[in-house]
Amino acid sequence: MNSDKIKTSTQVGLFVTCLADLIRPQIGFAAVALLEHAGCTVRVPRNQTCCGQPALNSGDSVSTIAIAKTVIKTFAQDDYVIAPSGSCVDTICHKYPELFHNDALWAGRARALAAKTWELTSFLVEVMELQQVEATYDGVCSYHDSCSGLRELGIHDQPRQLLASVVGLELKEMNENNVCCGFGGLFSVKYPDISTRMVSNKCANIGHSGVDTLLGGDLGCLLNIAGRLRREGAPVRVFHVAEVLAGMTDGPAIGEGESGS
């Protein structure tokens, strides 16, 4: 394809997100692999931490603005900024510009960042026009639609489209796949009772669907769901969609021990 040549030069900066960075680095490696497979040159700036969502959702606009400025500066040079998370991308794309509505200079920079920032699967499908991946996964999977990605960014078909090309993978939708898992960042520790009820409902739906694997595009939700599944003793494996698409599923799934239990 002709367009492949052009896309070889597509330059992206990877914003790995704080949770993937600290807890599940493999998602970062998977994202890089997928982006390179799609023809991108990937830069991983060292000066990155978090998008600031915990501060914003706590109502602390001063802190959020400070973090947002760091993120804006870090990725100023990249043509695209890609993150393997719908909620972080929603923060950058929709919340940053609002934070700076009284500051013309930074508002412009925030809008520029927002305009070039994409969630991983939607970037692969919509911008890079990736049709398929080269991966194998032997399992029946359900996909949990994380809230910000689904409702603020319209991410629904893109991951499913790519998953359809994974050899051996069967996708089976569960009930209420678009209902919040109860993570909500600090919500999960501030209101643990409510959060637990919500994630229990999610786990019940996963159980009823009869799948052996749960996938999603936001590690926060996946930590919550995997953590609850483990506590309930449910034998369901949990992966970030990028790990499956990149064929990085030989090691332990999220919350699984090194012995594979």
Binding site: P25, F29, V44
Partner: peptide, 22 residues
Amino acid sequence: GGWTDSRDFPTPAGRSFIRQWH
């Protein structure tokens, strides 16, 4: 405890992505 009273917490990998990458 808000988290771990009702959920396990998946173990972090030990070294962050940024450090591993670089």
